[in-house]
Design a protein around this nucleic acid. Structure first.
Lengths: 210, 210
DNA sequence: CGAACGCTTGAGCAAATTCAAGTGCGGTGG
DNA sequence: CCACCGCACTTGAATTTGCTCAAGCGTTCG
């Protein structure tokens, strides 16, 4: 949640990608936990994740956090209205971003539109998970989604912490941990390490997600 | 959830607004509970609500339902990707819709884009409510939102049933009812009728929503 | 080696759900 | 006009799910 103490020895580019002129430059680096933008800040560009992962979230006054989405390598984020960010965005691990120009050709605009709409559909699908599914179903749906977005294999990396997963799924960190333990105990998944996971019984996992 | 037995004596227009040619025609009527479109159907237009109200939702295999949004008079809905609907939409009460052309001038496209992005922001804000707030906070946030969308007065109509409200907020109908009863008992709201509500203590309601 | 951090696990608790009766209102028919 | 019926809503009691609080574990880093 707070910026990590890492100091990037050789910043590739100016610290603010919005100021970056063209597209074919090296990506801007963000340290683990570093803020990309804050709610209320002005926005003039979109970002594509080159490597690493990003979390988008909102906060309540008392500190409760809801992560609305994660963005992995290759994905685009930063859609906003009125030229102002409505969410916070920060890098999860060491992350490289490339700014995309807001304006451009008609085809490019259409592509952005399509991207924004996919984002909308995804967001509303996630609402179904958070609003109407129990803890096991939420975790199962999350793991399936993460797998699909990492090439559809049954091996995946979870770049985010358990707290992040909880704040994404509307659960506490303890519940996330308990459900993962239970899935492990049942032989549905194997945790190669804390952040690296193999699905041993994909069919079973899919059944749990429904 | 199912189409009401009302038969509209004189349909203003063909039953499918997507087929409607221009914009300046009388609106297409939908009976209470009537389906506007289904998940998986092809889409080629957007809709503006002229009067009445619309619910957009998704279903789980076992019948659990999550309403992702309500649309009231003046609001636009129907944004989708790949030309296919990802949700079900139906009329809540007697509802009039006007189809908007998908294509058009650049300014019109920009307006649609802005509308879609507002929709995205709204959806992600709602996720915070469903994912991280308790029953009282959810109902309070819902009432405030409904009031704002009906002119910002403290008097409002709730066109939807308690079941709809529950399916929107991720609560059961009983919990919705209990919370409304409690707000009434505390003098925060007054229920003129089941579907008509007055906020007596707006400040208190706002405090509860946070 | 010790401290810090992220994660796991357990026990008790609270909030919301489930199950089960009621209540009231609008509409229909006698 | 009034009684009845159906439906949406309300209310209560018991249950369950996930949360809170608390302790312990393991890995990493200074």
């Amino acid at each position: 949640m707070t910026a990590a103490p890492i100091i990037l020895a050789t910043p590739f580019e100016t610290r603010h990608p919005g100021a970056m002129p063209a597209a074919s430059r090296p990506p801007v680096l963000f340290a683990p936990g570093e803020e990309i933008y804050a709610q209320g800040e002005r926005t003039d560009s979109l970002y594509r994740v080159e490597f690493g992962a990003v979390r988008l979230y909102r906060l309540l006054a008392d500190g409760r956090r809801q992560i609305s989405s994660f963005y992995l390598a290759g994905e685009v984020f930063g859609f906003e209205t009125g030229g102002v960010h409505h969410f916070f965005a920060d890098a999860i691990g060491l992350t490289g971003l490339r700014a995309l120009p807001r304006s451009g050709s008609r085809e490019f605009a259409d592509e952005i539109m399509e991207s924004a709409l996919r984002c909308l559909v995804r967001s509303q699908e996630h609402l179904l998970v958070v609003g109407r599914q129990n803890a096991i179903e939420r975790i199962a749906a999350f793991l399936i989604d993460m797998g699909d977005r990492q090439g559809g294999l049954d091996q995946m990396e979870l770049p985010m912490s358990r707290t992040d997963i909880g704040d994404y799924l509307g659960l506490t960190i303890e519940t996330v941990s308990r459900v993962l333990s239970r899935l492990r105990a049942e032989g549905v998944i194997r945790l190669a390490s804390l952040r690296s996971l193999v699905v041993l019984k994909p069919a079973r996992l899919r059944a749990l997600a429904a």
